[in-house]
Design a protein around this nucleic acid. Structure first.
Lengths: 251, 251
DNA sequence: CCGACTTTGTGCATGCGTTCACAAGCGGTA
DNA sequence: TACCGCTTGTGAACGCATGCACAAAGTCGG
């Protein structure tokens, strides 16, 4: 990856003007898929695969081949017609577009069950996201190392975040604390937040929030269960008047 | 799946024919938002609020008011013009559409850090999703109760899932095990899967999978960090020739 | 060197989701 | 009862994303 342009290059790779325009134009949905392609490609590279066609890659990523090619075209033309894509080349270009050539220091707030799990994830999946700070309010936790990092008190959040240049904050607190934690992160200069608390966060425009909401996910699945069950019931009604699990459906 | 529950139904509410057609037509994106509205409404109900306008609710849920009204219109017309919506009425209708009047037994596979966190979540956020089975391969874990449920061996997955009428399977295993676990869940009749493993699962058409992918979420945030930083650099170039963190940008 | 075959990259059409804007409907008031 | 102000519900326009289908461009065999 990466790219030693200039002289004192460390981690960050500046984008060429052409890339910059492209990055602006990439649809959000495509960005999410690029991350998936990247993982699949990394797996392939580990197994010694050097070239791949859009057809193969799309199957492995679980998407339409045309969609995959369009997604890749957003970041440039790095394939060879008649052949396919070079795995390494693709990996490095996706990493560059996703900003993975730069390190993103992560802070986890709320060291409960979930916070523990996150802190122990070990440098976070797909490295490049070192967890450098942990916060909680529980006095018994302060100073205790979790996953190698000692827990700081939440009141120190601003100082610690600034000092360790935290660029991504992860909220894993109970719901009532989430908004207040969020506000503190924002005032500490954190502009990207991953929220696990089942709360709709209010943030200024310049802050990006993504939420992972278990309750919502479960309820979406529940919706599909219900829909399926109901369709089945609808079909079976007229046969025996009974739904899928013996439930009586009114005529 | 499923089956033999007797006659006198306990929890499930069958949908009226009109509702059934509606349920089919609700866009996936709207379903996700309905779950959010439900949570906000529940919170309001707990605080004694009995009526709410689309404007208030949409603000609390962080969406456009028009979108909220359209989302609600998918499930029927339960508002009063000139007044707003009755909180309780709305709650019960959303619950019905999302299938929350029925209980969804949940199985968690992979009792590592994340699995522990999930099992201890305590009946899962927004009750209605009792965790009734836990699975792992580690002999030291088998039989040990986590969050009140003893861990079963993964080889017993089919029998246990059938017996406990599991309708939602949660995969929290290491990546290499995920597909195999998924296959076993499917053959045990589980039709809805929530996947935390960073793997693209291959499933038959009749199975619904939702994935929660931390790496992808982080990378999407990373993309935004990079885009922001790059825009900032682009602006500052021409001023002092330096990017955001003192990085040299070529002229 | 040429022609056949393969696979990319993309213009275009289609469909879905979001947003706007307004008529319809309801409660309150005189 | 008739009017007025407020809020819902929704038709219609718009914009984004997906999928199709094909020309462009490359490789490989002869």
């Amino acid at each position: 990856m990466a790219s030693q342009r200039g002289e004192g290059e460390t981690t960050a790779t500046p984008l060429e003007p052409a890339d910059r325009e492209r990055a602006r134009a990439i649809p959000e949905a495509a960005v999410a898929r690029l991350a998936v392609y990247l993982r699949v490609l990394s797996g392939m590279a580990d197994q010694g695969v050097t070239a791949v066609s859009s057809e193969e890659l799309s199957q492995a990523a679980g998407v339409n081949a045309a969609k995959l090619r369009k997604d890749l075209s957003y970041i440039g033309s790095y394939g060879t017609r008649g052949v396919g894509y070079d795995v390494e080349v693709l990996v490095s270009h996706i990493e560059r577009i996703l900003g993975l050539t730069r390190n993103h220091s992560v802070a986890v707030v709320g060291i409960g069950n979930l916070g523990h799990a996150l802190a122990n994830y070990g440098g976070f999946p797909g490295r490049g996201f070192p967890v450098t700070a942990l916060f909680d309010v529980d006095p018994d936790l302060i100073g205790v190392p979790v996953g190698g990092i000692p827990v700081s008190h939440i009141d120190d959040i601003t100082a610690v975040c600034l000092e360790r240049e935290v660029s991504i904050g992860v909220i894993a607190t109970p719901p009532p604390a989430a908004q207040s934690v969020c506000d503190r992160l924002v005032s500490a200069g954190v502009q990207c937040i991953l929220n696990f608390a089942p709360v709709v966060l209010q943030v200024p425009d310049n802050v990006e929030v993504r939420k992972v909401d278990l309750a919502v996910e479960m309820q979406i699945l529940s919706f599909h269960v219900a829909r399926r069950a109901d369709e089945a019931a609808h079909v079976s009604v007229g046969n025996n008047g009974l739904g899928v699990d013996g439930m009586v459906i009114r005529p």
